[in-house]
């Protein structure tokens, strides 16, 4: 498993796409930090961009790589290696490569320009989002048979999670505004890794405003460490669960 991961990382490191992604992130972050003297404002801008680009690149790149490596995967399956180890090795290799790009592209500039609690939260949240969407990419890839369908599904997941989910939630809130919705809102948040990451950052940036909310459940959620613990553990689940489902599908999949 680790050997496969190692060779995939060695392969990806030479790919231009991931280098371009790293440079893109690094450029965005550096430009934002250099053009704005207010570090917190810079972090806010980066958060907005990170919550769109990182999931998109993570899921599309991982899906594309998975399908491009389909014959290689076949070759590995014909070798005396467990299927589980093959898929996990691929996940490990791809996710750590994309994560590496995120670390170099975002974490490094943030550490240089804005090393603070908020900055670190952004790093952790972005890293977990990367893992979650790579994991989702594996689910989408094993679920579908060919590349175009796989990428289609991956794009839909991204579009759904990063763009329209919140609109749907807002619509939901408008429709049922007469009902107590706190619990429902927390559940809805947990269903989207982008929202979970955003909440983590909110808890650092906007805690003053969050504390103004009257409901007891939110207060408990926002106050103390509950919110952070909840978000981090849910994001962990998002990073692991889809890949476990993918394993299940892969173990029975015909290649």
């Amino acid at each position: 498993m680790f050997k496969i991961a190692k060779y995939i990382i060695l392969d990806i490191i030479r790919s231009k796409v991931l280098i371009a992604y790293t440079l893109l992130l690094a450029t965005i972050c550096t430009v934002i930090f250099l053009s704005d003297s207010d570090v917190i404002k810079g972090l806010v801008s980066i958060t907005t961009i990170v919550m769109i680009i990182v999931p998109l690149v993570s899921i599309i790149y991982a899906t594309t790589y998975y399908f491009n490596a389909a014959e290689f995967t076949e070759l590995l399956v014909s070798q005396p290696i467990k299927r589980r180890d093959i898929l996990l090795g691929e996940y490990l290799g791809i996710s750590s490569s994309i994560l590496g790009a995120f670390v170099l592209g975002v974490c490094l500039p943030v550490a240089l320009f804005a090393l603070s609690a908020t900055g670190i939260t952004l790093m952790v949240a972005g890293g977990l989002v990367t893992l979650s969407f790579t994991s989702l990419a594996f689910w989408a890839s094993t679920k579908t048979r060919d590349k175009s369908k796989g990428i289609g599904l991956a794009l839909m997941i991204w579009f759904y999670a990063a763009i329209i989910y919140d609109a749907l939630v807002l619509l939901f809130l408008f429709t049922f505004s007469d009902y107590p919705l706190e619990k429902a809102m927390i559940v809805l948040t947990a269903l989207n890794p982008v929202d979970l990451a955003r909440i983590m950052i909110l808890l650092k940036l906007d805690i003053s405003a969050l504390m103004g909310y009257t409901g007891a459940l939110y207060r408990q959620f926002f106050g103390s460490g509950t919110g952070i613990a909840f978000s981090v553990s849910m994001l962990f689940i998002w990073s692991v669960l889809p890949v476990l489902l993918a394993l299940k599908i892969f173990s029975k999949k015909d290649l």
């Binding site: 609109a167 807002l170 948040t189 955003r198 909110l202 906007d206 969050l210």
Partner: peptide, 8 residues
């Protein structure tokens, strides 16, 4: 308040 800073 949960939607603060979201893309939408």
């Amino acid at each position: 308040v949960m939607l603060m800073r979201s893309f939408m």
